[in-house]
Amino acid sequence: MQLSREQMLQAYRRMKVIREFEERLHVDIATGAIAGFTHLYCGQEAVAVGVCEHLDVEDKIVSTHRGHGHCLAKGCDVEGMMKEIWGSREGLCKGKGGSMHIADTDVGMLGANGIVGAGAPIAVGAALAAKLDGKGKVAITFSGDGACNQGTTFEAMNLAVVTKAPCVFVFENNHYSEHTGFDYAVGTQKDIASRAEAFGMQVWRADGTDFFAVHDTMRELLDYVRAGNGPAAVEFDTERFFGHFEGDPQRYRGEGELDRIRATRDCLKNFRKNVVSAKLLTDSDLDEIDAAVLDQIEAAVAAAKAAERPTAADVLTDVYVTY
């Protein structure tokens, strides 16, 4: 199904926001302006956006340690996120959570997560709630090729199957879990989707660096899940452009690997090439977005720098609702 001009512009803009958000964090982390453990999503934008463009606020997602892209794609506020990562009291989580724990339940974003594999069971719960509500909503869990080895992920897949939960297991295979290669850590040496299939799920596979492939796949998959057929899984082959965390020396990469994936597997470049050559959008349409996004990110950083800092009195707030 052909996307409208507006849909394409919106998708490109969302991917670009993620890209520039991350590129800017990369700079501000290197100078020491931002503290903590930060895992950048650069390179995987087409997955987050290609998935989330099909969702509304009542659909839920559960994310990972590499969560900025999922948050932005689901509609978390850019400035609120930037402030959070800068540790401000005005941040989306009041500076309590930081990069690894960004959440905004108002937009159906149930949290990034510092514990690998913790997200999948949570998504099953959210899916069961959606099933109870009976409005055709779904819950999506994003997992990596590393997280797919965690027992929690296996348990969640089986629970979703036996309960026919409207849960979607999105596996982003970026070929690395930290410094370990996919070929070593995933025993099937084949793919992740076949594991999900073995649990009794319908599965899909697609190129995660091609926005249109992701978007088309997800349309089909979500039609299936929303129709009450139970859970489904999809594996997207994708790339991470930066280190596992900021500061990773990446000595496990092959010669020229980063240059190669930046040149040939960049979802933003691929998107532009596709839509311009098919005369769906023009270079200047996209250039306009690029410029606007850079301004938006610059403004978010300025706001984060100027934002109020938390104080000692904030430590003990929000531990409980009442106590």
Binding site: G87, G95, K96, G98, P310, A312, D314
Partner: peptide, 9 residues
Amino acid sequence: SPVPFAAEL
């Protein structure tokens, strides 16, 4: 409380 993120906290 859990361990907070921001440096001040």
